[in-house]
């Protein structure tokens, strides 16, 4: 059970980073930490004690216990989506750097009210 709470703790670490950091790149890193805490959680859901990888091979043990393959498939899909999100965030961040000349969000505040 502890592991699941550690996952949630990691999620909160990422959230804390997003809220408190002032640097755009550090915000992106915090966001990625949050993302991967969710992926870890998914990987944990599918885990079965003494399970083997869910692949049909020739030398399988008798009556194999497979780990759940579905969360793994979901994590792979989510990683692909996460890749797209990170790429978008970084692309926007470097564009912002070009326009404002800084990564500090205290100086990037044209939108108010």
């Amino acid at each position: 059970m502890t592991v699941y709470f550690m996952c949630f703790f990691l999620f909160l670490v990422g959230l804390y980073g997003i809220v408190t950091r002032r640097n755009l790149i550090k915000i992106v890193i915090s966001f990625t930490i949050m993302e991967f805490s969710v992926f870890l959680f998914f990987a944990l859901i599918g885990y079965v004690e003494n399970g083997v990888a869910p692949i049909l091979t020739k030398n399988l043990p008798e009556n194999p216990v497979f780990v759940d393959p579905l969360p793994q498939a979901m994590v792979l899909t989510a990683i692909v989506i996460g890749l797209a999100t990170s790429a978008m965030l970084l692309a926007i961040a470097i564009r912002i750097y070009k326009k404002y000349g800084t990564f500090d969000i205290r100086e990037i505040n044209n939108l108010r009210g």
Partner: peptide
């Protein structure tokens, strides 16, 4: 598709840097 997409992302970022 994935290979082409990753290369496109990489090239887009690097072209941006070069132009700078």
């Amino acid at each position: 598709e994935v290979a082409a997409a990753i290369i496109t992302i990489f090239l887009a970022l690097i072209i941006f840097k070069e132009e700078e």
